[in-house]
């Protein structure tokens, strides 16, 4: 492989039902800084059925220099094979040096399939991306639970691929005056390989919340107790106009839906305020919330790991503190 042939930073601009996903916008911001240090360009790959052209301008406003736009009815709904074929053809023609994908259910399905097809490396869930002096992509990700960080390189293969979770990178400020080029690309599909048939796509309201968007999170762990404890937590969240989040233990116990799980196997969040009730602070959990602006931890155990990262720690029993806090907030409202 002649590495010198591979240039420019590509972002998979994931859209669902015509709506560009926030993570794609965040990735464009990162791609912009990577491309600037390489003195290369940012390309967005926009795939869809129809009526997605208007999104191309948005991608340019958020940092793309060029948008490769492929519209085909085979791309209207995501399937692994149609998207893998499309991106493979684009990669073979444009030879990108770097491809970034959001670590969404789609990105995590598509990324590894592509990496195997392109015979290149893929680094999952990167928290930091930079360019080395040798012009290589340095991909840093948490390993073995979160406290250990590993910087990964992909020296001999191109493109260098990484996925990044939603909320990890910061988007650029939208600049509608930015100019860019939109390139239409026609995909030649091998339809014999389309072997997964979508029968139904169902949206569930309970799944619509995205805790990574919340400014304030009221998060509960083992110390909150069972269902009764969580009902108090929900009430507190309502009082504070916050979203409820939880540690893995609570999700595994079936008290909270997975969508609200913070941590390595859940969401990465960085709210303005993170209230951790009865969460001991296992490293997997901390990996998902330590970037929060301000962390308040309430825990019985003075020496729980969460106290190490909290800006404010309260040693106490959540089962007493939460109801008392709700009462106080309610009496305040009356005043």
């Amino acid at each position: 492989m002649n590495k010198a042939e591979y240039k420019n930073v590509f972002v998979f601009a994931e859209q669902r039902e015509g709506k560009i996903q926030a993570v794609a916008i965040e990735l464009l911001g990162k791609a912009r800084s990577l491309a600037d240090s390489l003195e290369e360009e940012v390309y967005a790959i926009l795939l869809g059925g129809k009526d997605i052209e208007q999104n191309a301008q948005t991608l340019i406003a958020y940092g793309a220099d060029k948008v490769i736009l492929a519209m085909d009815k085979e791309l209207e709904n995501y399937t692994t094979e149609s998207y893998a074929q499309a991106i493979t053809q684009i990669v073979n023609q444009y030879k990108p040096s770097i491809i970034l994908l959001g670590a969404t259910t789609i990105g995590r399905d598509l990324g590894p399939r592509l990496s195997a097809r392109l015979t290149t490396g893929l680094t999952a869930d990167c928290t930091k991306l930079e360019i080395s002096e040798e012009k290589e992509l340095l991909m840093t990700r948490p390993a073995f639970g979160g406290n250990l960080m590993a910087t990964i390189i992909c020296s001999e293969h191109r493109p260098q691929m990484s996925t990044v979770r939603p909320g990890v990178m910061k988007a650029m400020i939208k600049d509608t005056s930015r100019k860019g080029e939109i390139i239409s690309f026609e995909i030649k599909f091998n339809k014999d390989k389309f072997r997964v048939r979508i029968k139904e796509t169902i949206k569930e309201k309970s799944n619509m919340i995205d805790i990574s968007d919340a400014k304030v999170l009221v998060s509960g762990g083992r110390g909150v107790g069972t269902e009764k404890g969580f009902n108090f937590l929900k009430e507190l969240a309502t009082e504070l106009n916050a979203e409820v989040a939880a540690s893995r233990a609570m999700v595994d116990a079936g008290l909270v839906e997975h969508k609200r799980q913070v941590g390595q196997t859940g969401q990465t969040v960085r709210p303005d305020l993170y209230l951790a009730f009865g969460i001991s602070g296992a490293i997997q959990h901390v990996a998902g919330m330590e970037e929060s602006e301000f962390i308040v931890a309430i825990n019985k155990d003075r020496y729980a790991p969460i106290m190490q990262i909290a800006d404010l720690g309260i040693v106490g029993d959540c089962k007493k503190i939460i109801p008392a806090l709700i009462d106080r907030l309610k009496s305040r409202t009356k005043e």
């Binding site: 490396g121 390189i153 909290a310």
Partner: peptide, 15 residues
């Protein structure tokens, strides 16, 4: 294709 260039601990944030 991927290799670990370095591994490090993040250290303790001051409480």
């Amino acid at each position: 294709p991927t290799k670990v260039k370095k591994a490090f601990t993040k250290g303790v944030k001051s409480a």
